[in-house]
Amino acid sequence: MRLSLPQPYEDLGHTADVGVRTRGATAEEALARLVLAFAALAAGGAAVAAEREERVAVEGGPGLAGSAVALLRELLYRLATEALVPAACEVLRVDAAGTEAVVAFGRRDPVLHAEGADLKAVTWHAARLEREGAGWVAQAVFDI
């Protein structure tokens, strides 16, 4: 399922950094929302105009949470070096070996996204991608 900004996410209230939690009917949906929560933080909640679409595949693990962290690490590197911010995301596959997603990227605009957070790293602390009740939950803490 392809999802676009904005998507719902919860703030974990982490003291020093920023933690977010998302939910979905499937692991893929929860992870796509986590990608877009990352984008919303980077863009300060402002709109992101998609410029190009790309298939992003990364090796992951340990576990599903490790694969979620791996995808976010790759996207953070692109944000840091090319100012690319996801505007939409469809997670095609996520398992303990890795994940594959189609991501529509826009550019971080220094004016429009001036209130965006300077996300510097994806931590492994409290990272989750797991079943909870009838659905799935994804969670990550970003160093800022």
Partner: peptide, 19 residues
């Protein structure tokens, strides 16, 4: 700056994978 972040990021990932 970004250099230190990337160093830490890569080694945490490598060590986690090889733990």
């Amino acid at each position: 700056r970004g250099l230190g972040y990337q160093v830490c990021d890569e080694f945490v990932a490598e060590i986690a994978a090889r733990r």
